[in-house]
Design a protein around this nucleic acid. Structure first.
Lengths: 211, 211
DNA sequence: CGCGGTAGTTAGAAGCTCTAACTCTTGCGA
DNA sequence: TCGCAAGAGTTAGAGCTTCTAACTACCGCG
């Protein structure tokens, strides 16, 4: 993934960490996070058990690293689409493709959270990065006035929405974009849409187009 | 929960199964599904380990039973709201309250699925029941004509949508209701909305009202 | 009143995470 | 170039998990 070079020891370390993560992603893709086993990874890599604790403090740290990589990957996909100039509908399709290409990776981020888990700051920073791009893609006229009650609430908000240079309707659109996207994706990836027998991509496109 | 009586043996059996499930819900509510431990439940109930295997074939069967109960509970809440006469906005609020009252119960149904898991038929039947109520709540004029491209696709669909007596726009509305609801709820319950500092209930109301 | 089925027990296999203590190798500084 | 500290990897083992097997003891139906 990255090779910051430096000491040969450091380089080797980074290499092993990457290989561990590669095997971890394989396991996750086939059996989900719960089935992720440090022991099994070690065995696959030809070393036994506790050796991996040199590279990851424990299962949780490995998962945290995987979550970070997943966020990074999504953020990169979103940024690339934005840089190439995209519409909300196209961006939604890009994100959906990203999610479908590895459902467990999506679910690692947006699926059931572990009760005790708190994302470290660098991870929430990536999350903010994604939301910022969303906001730019959803931007409308510069002097757009609030239209709905929720727009007004957003305008008076002291949180994320209030601190932004975007107009309330823009924030509202970005939020709706995000929740509608997650709605279709989470149901589709959890298999709740499949028995209904239609293409979720079509519903998603329409949902996002109506913004 | 239910008491079908019959043999005193049967009655005792049902009683124990219910107590096991009660303890299981407690564990799940505080630490999530992954932390659910038959051993710990047995200890809490004053009996040791493998005794529970008389009542549940294994961890998976217990979880399946919990999922069934969760679905049943949601279906009951939805039916009750419908019977009392409800609007989509009010129904969305009811479902949100249901989810917030026990987030892990919601996530057990709509959160990250276990890769190998396939819901038994009786569970999918309850799921259909919920969708049917949704459809009735979202029903419009009887002879409503398709309005969007997706409506047309829905009208020609051979799956769930095509086999229903509802008009395409009604099916479309029900689907959008469902995905928008899940979008807000899944993000909110996973904690992705909290740092943004606004009331998700307001966004949900607006999203559903715009149908 | 007796016998069958069922509840519960303990023992134990196989798996997991993670700690502790030990060995061996590697690469940096003198 | 040599020596030594740091780090990689090992095995042993504690403590947890699910789940099987074998055994005992009791409950209640005929």
């Amino acid at each position: 993934m990255t090779e910051p070079a430096g000491n040969p020891r450091e380089r080797y370390r980074a290499q092993v960490r990457d290989e561990v993560k590669r095997h971890a992603w394989e396991q996750i893709a086939t059996a989900g996070v719960t089935a992720l086993s440090l022991n099994a990874i070690a065995k696959e890599m030809g070393m036994s058990g506790p050796a991996l604790y040199r590279y990851f403090a424990g299962r949780d740290e490995l998962i945290t690293a995987l979550i970070r990589d997943a966020y990074r990957s999504l953020a990169d996909a979103v940024r690339a689409a934005h840089a190439a100039g995209t519409t909300p509908v196209a961006l939604a399709a890009v994100i959906r493709e990203w999610a479908l290409s590895d459902p467990q990776r999506y679910l690692l981020i947006y699926g059931t959270p572990v009760p005790g888990y708190h994302a470290p700051d660098d991870v929430t920073a990536i999350s903010d990065e994604i939301l910022t791009v969303l906001l730019e893609v959803c931007a409308g006229e510069p002097d757009e006035q609030p239209k709905t009650p929720f727009d007004l609430v957003l305008g008076m908000s002291r949180g994320w929405a209030g601190a932004l240079p975007a107009s309330s309707p823009t924030v509202h659109r970005a939020l709706a974009f995000w929740t509608r996207l997650q709605g279709v994706l989470s149901l589709e990836l959890a298999g709740h849409l499949a028995p209904l027998g239609f293409d979720p991509g079509l519903l998603l496109a329409e949902e996002v187009a109506e913004l």
